[in-house]
């Protein structure tokens, strides 16, 4: 699996989180191609969740797509496709065309981290109140009012 990916996309970095958990690090430019390849050729068709991470020390934001599979034999395999972007202008392409189920997960990542998903059908607030006008709450420089 890892060899297939690196053969097709020489610029991606693959590392194993553990057995049957493959993390693929790529850039915002190539993430969609990697996603399409993972879905159609490698058989990762079942989106599990999308997470954002704020690496404030490196001034970067990370988006991770966790994709599972319903293909017999690799149900236990989880592919994590990660991309990193600068914190000042976080724009990444949406993956809704690849996995339709990513829509609400991306919407949540947008409101929690302020990451813009280009081409996303609707990026209005999903969980936060309509009148939220502070920083996106899961960014590290946002401090909870109780703390």
């Amino acid at each position: 699996m890892a060899a297939q990916l690196t053969a097709k996309f020489p610029e991606v970095k693959v590392d194993w989180m553990k057995e049957r958990r493959l993390k693929v690090s790529t850039s915002a430019m190539h993430v969609k191609e990697v996603g399409l390849f993972a879905r159609s050729t490698l058989g990762f068709d079942h989106i599990s969740t999308v997470s954002g991470v704020d690496w404030i020390a490196k001034n970067e934001l990370e988006v991770v797509y966790f994709v599972g599979s319903t293909t017999p034999g690799q149900e236990d395999f989880i592919l994590a496709i990660s991309e990193r972007i600068a914190r000042d202008n976080p724009v990444v392409p949406t993956m809704v065309e690849v996995w339709k189920g990513a829509e609400y997960h991306e919407r949540e990542t947008h409101e929690m981290f302020g990451i813009n998903f280009q081409g996303h059908p609707d990026q209005s607030h999903l969980f936060l109140p309509e009148d939220w006008n502070e920083l996106p709450p899961l960014r590290k420089d946002y401090v909870s009012p109780g703390r």
Binding site: L126, F127, P129, P137, L138, S144
Partner: peptide
């Protein structure tokens, strides 16, 4: 949704 969003992750 979001009427019970309590910010568990934060």
């Amino acid at each position: 949704a979001g009427y019970v969003h309590r910010g568990e992750e934060k």
